[in-house]
């Protein structure tokens, strides 16, 4: 039964991927200690079309608000700031990764425990593509280091 459900997820996931020019690869949310209100999601976004596409919005019930963020240097300091969109140039893969771009989750509605999953996480793109991640893994920052 579990295997079956998983297969359906994979199927849904892959159909979402191959039906559009935008692919989301290796997406995950970072696990945080219980009680902390915020976390971040990271992934690679591949644009295989010949046009610039913008990630415009992310929707999920896992947090009260989701924002697109970047890190910038302010003197010697790292500063995180809200940006309206993330640009994915034509035929390019943009990586959202620790220390750089991320989807910021503000006001977590459930604890983010390692090895658990988020079942709804939708990314809206300027070309009309919507990518729904139904099995987004929650990983510890420690695990990220391993690969």
């Amino acid at each position: 039964m579990l295997k079956h459900t998983f297969a359906v997820y994979i199927f849904l996931f892959t159909t979402a991927l191959y039906s559009s020019s935008i692919e989301v690869i290796d997406a995950y949310i970072r696990a945080v200690p219980i009680g902390l209100p915020n976390s971040a999601a990271f992934m690679k976004i591949k644009n295989s079309s010949n046009k610039i596409v913008y990630l415009q919005k992310v929707v999920s019930t896992s947090a009260e608000k989701l924002e697109l963020h970047e890190h910038v240097m302010s003197g010697a300091m790292m500063k995180m700031q809200h940006i309206p969109t993330i640009e994915i140039p034509a035929n390019t893969t943009v990586e959202l990764k620790p220390g750089g771009l991320h989807v910021m989750l503000l006001g977590l509605t459930k604890p983010l425990v390692v090895d658990d999953f988020i079942n709804d996480f939708s990314l809206f793109f300027s070309n009309g593509d919507v990518i729904q991640l139904k099995h987004l893994p929650i990983k510890s920052a420690m695990n990220e280091m391993k690969h």
Partner: peptide
């Protein structure tokens, strides 16, 4: 700071690893 969603967890994880 604890509310730091990215830089602090990354750095602490790097040290811990």
């Amino acid at each position: 700071y604890m509310y730091c969603p990215d830089i602090c967890p990354t750095s602490l994880s790097v040290i811990a690893s």
